[in-house]
Design a protein around this nucleic acid. Sequence first.
DNA 1: TATATTTGCGTACTTAAAACACAATATAAA
DNA 2: TTTATATTGTGTTTTAAGTACGCAAATATA
Lengths: 227, 227
Amino acid sequence: MSFPNPQIKLTVDAIVFGYNEGKISILLIQRKYDPFKGQWAIPGGFVLENESLEEAVARELKEETGVSINYLEQLYTFGNVDRDPRGRVVSVAYFGLIHPEGHTLEATTDAEKAQWFDMETLPELSFDHKQIIDVAIERLRGKITYEPIGFELLETKFPFSNLEKLYTTLLGRPIDRRNFRKKINSLNILDELDEKISQGKGRPASLFRFNEKRYKQLQKEGIIFEI
Amino acid sequence: MSFPNPQIKLTVDAIVFGYNEGKISILLIQRKYDPFKGQWAIPGGFVLENESLEEAVARELKEETGVSINYLEQLYTFGNVDRDPRGRVVSVAYFGLIHPEGHTLEATTDAEKAQWFDMETLPELSFDHKQIIDVAIERLRGKITYEPIGFELLETKFPFSNLEKLYTTLLGRPIDRRNFRKKINSLNILDELDEKISQGKGRPASLFRFNEKRYKQLQKEGIIFEI
DNA sequence: TATATTTGCGTACTTAAAACACAATATAAA
DNA sequence: TTTATATTGTGTTTTAAGTACGCAAATATA
């Protein structure tokens, strides 16, 4: 069989989640050009011939939002025939996590502007991006219980209560503070720092830091993270 | 930005697992044309412009091996720049399960022949297909414990011991027969039939059938399958 | 100085997992 | 036809993990 040349285009898209004070947000861009000009969309774009998918998604994210990201994993590939009015476009979606603070948003190229949106109140979205986001949310909710990805959404130093709040938010249900703490402590993946922080009133809280080396060591020993 | 036309081609590949008497096997084809002419490879091929990814993978699998498949899910998309000597080819890999008996292999089009290979003794493979298979194996091993996909690998009626053997094989460790049976029974997802089967010597075994409706009902109730 | 608020730790209770023993039913060999 | 062997099928006890819950310590505010 010969080497065919169907008119199928390949894009990458990045669903980036952020977390701040009990709210999960998603990074969106406003499209500068047609189709869907002026509408909100997931950042992303066409893959260049000489770059890998991971390089493409990092580049597009940087171009359209100014954000560089630490945690990025492949989510799913969306290939319905009619998902793009311009023709056949298949998109490899990625799923990223950052802490919104410390990242300034700067839109260039295809994006008019970039902005964080509360996960609960998203605007109308271009293409099949709403569906893609639904898949991403499902993945985030599922993964948080068996991989320590929550720390990617927190600042490097955080009080225990912030971690707890993140989990109650993502799981959508209250968790017992004392049992949660016991479980995390039993895994030994947090380093308690000598610093303390006082948020509002009440007793000041110790700051903790996720110990990634320790976690990877546990993984090797076959010990699994589970909440 | 204009609608670009990079020379990126899109393929789909299908890693199909089978199971028979304590052995996991993988369905491979022998390539009829260059590159890698005569070498073994995962069945798959180029996506046509007017078909979805799922349609493409089912079509290619049928063409190259004669097999129609019941269980097929997206695995991962492989997009390294140099994974295909012909140029830039991105492949969306799918992951399928069937019971090898009752499927006659018939190679046509791009495949010289189709054949089952024991998972432990695979031949040298084309492209990055070895890596893709490694990802698929990892997925199969992981998923077997939290989704009842094992039944896709067994015949519709099976004795309990076959299910147990499948799990010991996939998990790579012995499991307690009595506790395993207790766990499966507690989920109520198996129907015991009035038939019995006698395999070799020993007491004849009752045949069971997976009750998918019952499982989906449990899912709705939030009860999770876990081994 | 008293009150409200948040952090931090400990113990009792409940449920699920792991370990283990023996009876029942068939085939094959003595 | 009796005995040995293999496989199926069902218990109970022990151990560990998960859940529920109470109370003291440290701070801000009234």
